[in-house]
Amino acid sequence: MTALRRLERAVDLDHGDHVAWAYEDRADLRTVLADTFTEAAGRGEQLVYVGNRHPAALCDDLADLDGRDAMLENGRLRLHSIAELYHATGRFEPRAQVETFRAEAQRAVSAGYHGLRVVGDVTDLVTDAAGHAAFVDYELALEAMYAVTPVTGICAFDRHRVGEQWREIAALHRLQRAVGQEPGFALTYASGAVRLFGELDASSAAEFRRLLDAVLAATTGVLEVDLDRLDFIDVSASRVLAEARETMACANRDLQLTGVRRAAVLPLAAFNLHGGAPR
């Protein structure tokens, strides 16, 4: 599993890569689309762009993509509205949506494509406060699916509309882009284990707490937290783990730490948290 990475451009992406991209304006989004779809087309992948606007407007976003019209014509490039793809049943269903993308990727491979590259402008999903928990659940499931499916995805957000929530959503991705505002860490969940990447400190403890709470709410039984890919953790973030342990203990659940590096031992031990060393 790759480490946390900050991107300058939406290129050099491979299957399994899951990117959070906070775009500054429409021109920034157009550059992202042109960069990543040009790379994907060159690799023989199928391209999907999802956005919450009229198809003609989505098409305009792809104005900088060479061969756009031909790819739309021959089916290599497909456009979907948010409503069409995410709200087909009238409400956003995270697990069903992840299955949709998994099936899309398999269909693309069956049709002879090298894989699937998806860019979704999910600004409206992120800003929908009522659907926030579902969206976090969706991103966690998406990350797990990406790890075993020939798909590459970019979740794009309008940084100015999303505001501070951006950092929390971005932290669900191991590849991040938001000039000077990246959360600095990533959290993934699969097979009963949370994996942490990057650096956790007082600046990111609040986002870390909310995401960990979301995982706790969505799971049962023992939760493993793997710190092997975490480059730094301070007292603030260790406190979040201590609080999670307390919450779980009240529900007769156990939190187990693994991959604890030497530098993490003291801040964790300050809360009587201990765990296995890196493998």
């Binding site: 400190d201 007082a202 730094f232 301070d234 007292v235 603030s236 030497r262 530098a263 801040p267």
Partner: peptide, 20 residues
């Protein structure tokens, strides 16, 4: 590396307190 880790964590904690 051990000294680097120690200095980094110690300064980080003081700075976090100071910023608060």
């Amino acid at each position: 590396e051990a000294l680097r880790d120690d200095v980094t964590l110690a300064v980080n904690e003081l700075v976090a307190n100071a910023i608060t």
